[in-house]
């Protein structure tokens, strides 16, 4: 399933595309909200590894404007819950992701992103 936690780890891997190759830009998305168990320890531990700018940009592309532009230093429960929601509860069921560098398009279908490349595109 494409949630923003997955999206934050993805990068374009087409042949020769090695810089400015994330975050992939969402377009034509169909979203669904599905509740997930909140584990504050996980969110707290994962926070320093997040590419924050990429997460903020991606969440705005799919219509969620709740995250602050800077990674906050004070982590209260409300913020951790909001971050949990953005990372794990918004599902992109259909749509596509486009590389900001080479414009390769990765489709999302039935919630599964397809990162396979055609043979001539593989590095």
């Amino acid at each position: 399933m494409v949630r923003l936690i997955t999206h934050n780890l993805l990068a374009c891997h087409a042949k020769g595309c090695t810089s400015n190759n994330f975050p992939l830009r969402f377009s034509n998305v169909k979203l669904a909200l599905r509740e997930a168990d909140f584990n504050p320890d996980f969110i707290r531990g994962f926070l320093p590894r997040i590419e924050w700018d990429a997460l903020v940009q991606a969440s705005r592309e799919i219509g969620d404007t709740s995250l602050p532009p800077e990674r906050p230093e004070m982590l209260d429960d409300d913020f951790l819950k909001q971050l949990h929601h953005v990372l794990l509860e918004i599902h992109v069921d259909e749509g596509s992701m486009t590389c900001p560098n080479c414009e390769h398009v990765y489709p999302i279908s039935s919630g599964i992103p397809n990162m396979l490349l055609a043979e001539h595109e593989i590095r």
Partner: peptide, 11 residues
Amino acid sequence: VRGDVLEGGWR
């Protein structure tokens, strides 16, 4: 994620 173990697709 659908992809190939020989390829990549991650930061």
